Simulated assay, not measured.
Amino acid sequence: MYTFKKEERLCSKKLLDQLFSSGSSFLVYPFKVVYLREVLPVNYPSQVVIVVPKRRFRRAHDRNLIKRRIREVYRLHKHDLFYSFLKERNMQILLSLQYVGKEIVNFSMMDKKLQAVFRQLNKIYSEDGHKDN
């Protein structure tokens, strides 16, 4: 249950281009979230890409630390807060989590903010009139 498999990662160049060209976005600092409802080639409710800019964090070990923390928080909360919501509505979405903070935040802060991201996505897709497909 608490896994983060290769199939859940967004690697397809075609889908990435589609996400960034026609996806919608919102900001929950330190995350900028880009999302797009799409039929995915895998049997998971969502595929995610995690982005930490090299321009802001020059050292690879800093970028890797941030990405590891984001992946861990995503892995811990995706089933309870996100996948269950998408499955009951029979939806699949592409998701980009871009770290736009200027400093490295601790794990508990990242945990709280990513839960807020999931709640925001659930709120967006629970409104009946929202269609971005």
Score class of each variant (00 low, 15 high):
residue 1 M to A: 12
residue 2 Y to E: 12
residue 2 Y to T: 10
residue 2 Y to S: 13
residue 2 Y to A: 07
residue 2 Y to R: 15
residue 4 F to Q: 11
residue 6 K to E: 11
residue 8 E to Q: 15
residue 8 E to M: 10
residue 12 S to Y: 03
residue 13 K to T: 14
residue 13 K to C: 00
residue 13 K to L: 08
residue 14 K to A: 11
residue 16 L to Q: 13
residue 19 L to R: 09
residue 20 F to G: 07
residue 25 S to N: 12
residue 28 V to W: 01
residue 32 K to N: 10
residue 32 K to I: 07
residue 33 V to E: 02
residue 35 Y to F: 14
residue 35 Y to P: 10
residue 36 L to K: 15
residue 38 E to P: 00
residue 39 V to A: 01
residue 39 V to Y: 01
residue 40 L to T: 07
residue 41 P to H: 08
residue 42 V to S: 06
residue 45 P to N: 05
residue 46 S to V: 14
residue 47 Q to G: 04
residue 47 Q to R: 15
residue 48 V to Y: 04
residue 51 V to S: 14
residue 51 V to E: 10
residue 53 P to N: 13
residue 55 R to K: 15
residue 58 R to N: 11
residue 58 R to W: 02
residue 59 R to M: 03
residue 67 K to W: 00
residue 69 R to T: 04
residue 69 R to H: 06
residue 70 I to L: 09
residue 70 I to K: 00
residue 71 R to H: 02
residue 72 E to P: 09
residue 74 Y to W: 13
residue 75 R to A: 05
residue 75 R to F: 08
residue 77 H to M: 00
residue 78 K to V: 03
residue 81 L to F: 12
residue 82 F to E: 09
residue 83 Y to A: 02
residue 84 S to I: 01
residue 85 F to P: 03
residue 87 K to S: 09
residue 89 R to E: 10
residue 89 R to L: 15
residue 89 R to G: 06
residue 91 M to G: 03
residue 92 Q to M: 09
residue 94 L to G: 08
residue 96 S to M: 08
residue 98 Q to D: 09
residue 101 G to L: 00
residue 101 G to V: 00
residue 102 K to G: 09
residue 103 E to D: 11
residue 106 N to I: 02
residue 108 S to K: 11
residue 108 S to V: 11
residue 110 M to D: 02
residue 112 K to Q: 12
residue 114 L to H: 04
residue 115 Q to F: 06
residue 118 F to T: 07
residue 119 R to E: 15
residue 119 R to H: 13
residue 121 L to S: 07
residue 121 L to G: 02
residue 121 L to P: 03
residue 122 N to F: 03
residue 126 S to W: 02
residue 128 D to M: 05
residue 128 D to Y: 01
residue 129 G to V: 05
residue 130 H to T: 13
residue 131 K to L: 02
residue 131 K to T: 08
residue 132 D to A: 05
